[in-house]
């Protein structure tokens, strides 16, 4: 490969700035949507556990929609489609105050909430029936059984799936590029088109993504081990 010069990218103040800005935006989108997704997933799960058939079907429909429609299309539907339904003043405000990023967080968060709620649901289903019965026999009400006995176990069971989907969530932040958000992938593409150093710029982004993804996976492994040790006691 002709003159591989990593430093030309990293030390160049303009490119360096774009990279940092890109990483920051990627993290903002990832963390923002993760928090939204987790919170919403818990809400969805709770709704699904109520005896109301209507609520159960609504949640099932929500999950089905978000799992069968591609994330990019969901993002486009929000940013191009739904935003056009807002009154002009709101649209104006949004486009001045980083509306693209907001819509990205919204769309990605809503999408992942479906996956997270299914993971938690599987985690809940894999708890032996005896657990709930024992909790009730000891006098816990529904809420108390959930809070102290069932949900902690459900979360522990769901950790591997949750970690996998968290990594997916993080990777999906790159989709925001399609609606013009200057996150990491967008930054790197810009750098490449300006410097013509595709290999170096892509390599930087790849390493950054890999490091963070592996960190998330390592977190998951650590969590898994911690729970196993607690169980062994």
């Amino acid at each position: 490969m002709k003159d591989f010069d990593l430093l030309a990218i990293l030390l160049n103040p303009e490119f360096g700035g774009m990279l940092v800005h890109g990483v920051v935006l990627t993290l903002v989108i990832a963390i923002g949507s993760w928090l939204l997704a987790m919170t919403l997933a818990l809400v969805l799960l709770t709704l699904r556990l109520t005896p109301s058939k209507l609520l159960q079907h609504t949640v099932a429909a929500y999950v089905s929609y978000h799992r069968n429609v591609p994330t990019l299309v969901q993002l486009m539907l929000w940013y191009f489609g739904i935003s056009s339904l807002f009154p002009d003043s709101v649209q104006g405000w949004l486009s001045e105050h980083g509306g693209e990023a907001l819509f990205s967080i919204l769309a990605l968060g809503l999408c992942q909430a479906a996956y997270f709620s299914e993971d938690l649901r599987s985690g809940l289903r894999s708890i032996p029936d005896g657990q709930a019965e024992a909790a009730r026999a000891l006098g816990h009400g529904f809420v108390s059984s959930m809070r102290h006995v069932l949900m902690p176990q459900a979360v522990r069971n769901a950790v591997p799936a949750l970690v996998n989907h968290s990594v997916s969530l993080f990777k999906n932040s790159s989709l925001a590029m399609a609606i013009g958000v200057a996150e990491l992938t967008h930054a790197v593409k810009e750098i490449e088109s300006q410097s013509f150093r595709a290999f170096e710029s892509y390599a930087v982004a790849t390493v950054l993504y890999l490091v963070i993804s592996l960190l998330i996976m390592a977190c998951g492994a650590w969590l898994g081990k911690r729970y196993r040790i607690a169980e062994a006691k």
Binding site: K171, S174, L175, E192
Partner: peptide, 18 residues
């Protein structure tokens, strides 16, 4: 496998494109 799982699809597209 680890690299592909850790990197967004868009990045893989950019790499292949290049």
């Amino acid at each position: 496998v680890y690299v592909v799982r850790g990197v967004p699809l868009l990045m893989v597209i950019l790499w292949v494109y290049f």
